[in-house]
């Protein structure tokens, strides 16, 4: 009906399927935001090399480091969940039962975490080193 109705549903509606969907949207937005920033800063190389250096310095800040760790999470989740949905939708709709769907959502979260955690540890320790040095 509207943005307001959709937001109410996103936040309040219960169920694994809804959470998987809302996360997919949020991580998608996160990735788009990163891409937009990245396109802009890369354009600086040509149009305003000084600003580019500033941008790079900004990216070295711990806050951006944290953002990058979340970015990796977003990319992994968005990609995996996207593949999950495509598989069900296009390849094997016979698997569409509540049970299999719930399990597949949980597995997607587990695999996301397994892939993300090592990256998060490596990236996190870089930030800490940077802070220490």
């Amino acid at each position: 009906m509207s943005f307001k109705t959709a937001s109410e549903g996103y936040v309040k509606y219960q169920g694994l399927g809804n959470w998987a969907f809302v996360l997919h949207r949020l991580t998608g937005l996160g990735v788009i935001l990163f891409l937009a920033i990245h396109v802009v800063d890369t354009a600086f190389v040509y149009f305003a090399p000084d600003l580019y250096k500033e941008a790079i310095a900004l990216y070295r800040s711990p806050l951006f480091g944290l953002g990058e760790i979340l970015l990796v999470l977003s990319i992994i989740y968005h990609g995996l969940n996207g593949l999950r949905v495509i598989y069900f939708d296009m390849v094997n709709p016979n698997m569409w039962t509540i049970e299999i769907n719930r399990k597949s959502v949980i597995w997607t979260w587990i695999i996301t975490l397994v892939l993300w955690l090592p990256a998060a540890v490596v990236m996190g320790s870089h930030i800490l080193e940077h802070l220490g040095g």
């Binding site: 809804n18 998987a20 069900f88 709709p93 016979n94 569409w96």
Partner: peptide
């Protein structure tokens, strides 16, 4: 393919499957 419909259906219709 959020699957909310199938979870909600009181008649236990595999709705998302029908849509697919």
């Amino acid at each position: 393919t959020a699957f909310n419909c199938t979870e909600a259906c009181p008649r236990e219709i595999d709705i998302t499957k029908a849509i697919a």
